[in-house]
């Protein structure tokens, strides 16, 4: 449980960090909260030769409401979400998730940026950001660009970020009127990754039917996934109708593809997704009303 040898750099500005990424390329890894990277290094599953510690980039440690979205800086920690009034009052889906990610010790250290950049389908934020239709801001040697979340995750632990890019910000559109969201997670014990979890963000039409809905699923696919079938089963329908909920739950269960492991059999996980989808939708609808 002792990592291999590595060189350690602590840049003091974003540009300096990008210069280092350019210099060291694929040998380098960014170190944010370290809560995913360091365990991997201790097991020598990750053996980076160079660590670029961005904890000194305090200008990336922000969480603010601007121009119709919530801007989450790359060094914003999970605990900051829990302690933010804006998040607690307007971003219920995010607030739900912030409470069930890992445990308080990990949340004091882990960053939202790292959680997304790691592109781990077991992490909770990918499904949350997919449901929110968030945007990722990245900065590299040729400047800044924005990446829609739908094209951010490309494979297991793979994202659209290039080796020379730093994730600097995540933007979540501020939910409009009659919108609500919820995150429902089943875990074996505190600090565990999800057996399965469902993120829902939806908007109701004046007649109470679902006008728009996005659903993300956690840890039931080889990469972060959206449950578009479940979304389709919901849009235009009355979400207080038990049959509609059931149809959305069944669709989500059908489109995920969990693997059997110590958290449960594939059949169990699918059925958990069915149940949790119904519960998350119901909760989101309550909040939208």
């Amino acid at each position: 449980m002792i990592p291999g040898k590595f060189d350690y750099y602590a840049p003091t500005s974003v540009d300096e960090a990008i210069d280092m990424l350019v210099t060291h390329g694929s040998e380098a890894k960014i170190l944010a909260g370290g809560q995913s990277l360091i365990p991997a290094m201790r097991y020598r599953l990750a053996v980076p030769e160079v660590l670029i510690d961005i904890n000194g980039l305090t200008d990336l440690n922000y969480l603010k409401q601007v121009n119709g979205h919530l801007a989450i800086g790359a060094m914003c920690r999970e605990v900051d979400l829990e302690e933010s009034d804006v998040v607690q009052s307007q971003y219920h889906l995010l607030a739900d998730a912030a409470e069930v990610i890992a445990d308080p010790l990990v949340r004091n250290q882990a960053t939202v940026g790292g959680n997304i950049a790691h592109a781990d389908p077991a992490n909770d934020h990918p499904a949350v950001m997919l449901a929110y239709d968030a945007t990722v801001v990245a900065k590299g040697p040729s400047g800044e660009r924005t990446i829609p979340i739908d094209s951010f995750f490309t494979d297991l632990f793979e994202s659209a970020l290039s080796e020379q890019e730093l994730l600097t910000e995540i933007r979540i559109p501020t939910p409009g009127a009659n919108s609500g969201g919820a995150y429902v997670k089943l875990e074996r014990k505190v600090g565990d990754y999800a057996i399965g979890a469902v993120a829902v963000q939806l908007t109701l039409a004046a007649d109470g039917t679902v006008a728009a809905a996005r659903i993300g699923l956690t840890n039931v696919y080889y990469m972060p996934m959206r449950a578009t079938g479940a979304e389709a089963a919901l849009i235009g329908q009355d979400p207080s109708d038990e049959a509609v909920l059931e149809a959305a739950g069944i669709a989500a269960a059908a489109e995920c593809d969990p693997s059997a492991d110590l958290r449960g059999s594939a059949a169990y996980k699918r059925d958990v997704i069915r149940t949790l989808a119904k519960r998350a939708i119901t909760k989101a609808v309550e909040r939208a009303r």
Binding site: D103, K189, V190, L262
Partner: peptide, 15 residues
């Protein structure tokens, strides 16, 4: 398969 505390589930005060 249970060689770490991520999979060997020792309950905490929460449980």
């Amino acid at each position: 398969l249970t060689g770490t505390l991520a999979d060997y589930l020792v309950p905490t005060a929460v449980e």
